[in-house]
Amino acid sequence: MTSPRTAGTAPRSALTRARVLESAVDLADREGLGALTMRSLARELGIEAMSLYHHVANKEDLLDGVVDVVAVEIQDAVARLEPLADDAPRSAWRTATRRQILTARAVLLRHRWASTVLETRKTFSLPVIRYYDSLIGLMRHGGFSYDLVHHAMHALGSRALGFSQELFEPDGATAGSAGGGATEGADDAATAMLMQMAEQVPHMVEMLAAVSHEDGAGSTLGWCDDQSEFEFGLDIILDGLDRLAEREQH
Rank of each mutant, 00 (worst) to 15 (best):
A7M: 10
G8C: 03
T9E: 08
A10V: 03
P11M: 11
A14W: 04
L15M: 14
A18K: 00
R19C: 06
S23E: 14
A24W: 05
L27P: 05
R30I: 09
E31V: 10
G32T: 02
L41T: 09
L41I: 06
R43A: 15
R43I: 15
A49E: 01
S51K: 02
L52W: 02
Y53L: 01
Y53Q: 00
H54C: 01
V56G: 00
K59N: 05
L63N: 02
V66S: 12
V67Q: 04
V70L: 09
V72A: 09
E73T: 11
Q75F: 01
D76C: 04
V78A: 03
A79W: 10
R80I: 08
A88N: 08
S91C: 08
S91W: 06
R94H: 06
A96L: 07
R99E: 14
I101D: 00
L102K: 10
L102V: 07
L109E: 14
R112Q: 10
A114H: 06
T116V: 07
T123H: 11
R130Q: 05
D133Y: 13
D133E: 11
L135G: 08
L135A: 09
I136F: 12
M139P: 13
M139R: 15
R140L: 00
F144E: 15
Y146F: 02
Y146K: 01
L148K: 09
V149F: 09
H151I: 06
A152E: 01
M153F: 04
L156T: 05
S164V: 14
Q165T: 14
E166A: 08
S177Y: 07
S177D: 02
S177N: 05
S177V: 07
G179Y: 10
G180D: 01
D188V: 09
A192F: 03
M193C: 10
M195S: 12
M197I: 08
A198I: 11
E199D: 15
V201T: 08
H203P: 00
V205H: 14
V205P: 13
V205M: 11
M207A: 14
G216M: 04
G222S: 11
C224D: 02
D225L: 02
Q227W: 07
E229D: 09
E229M: 08
E231D: 09
F232K: 04
I237H: 14
I237V: 15
D242N: 08
R243P: 03
E248I: 00
H250N: 14
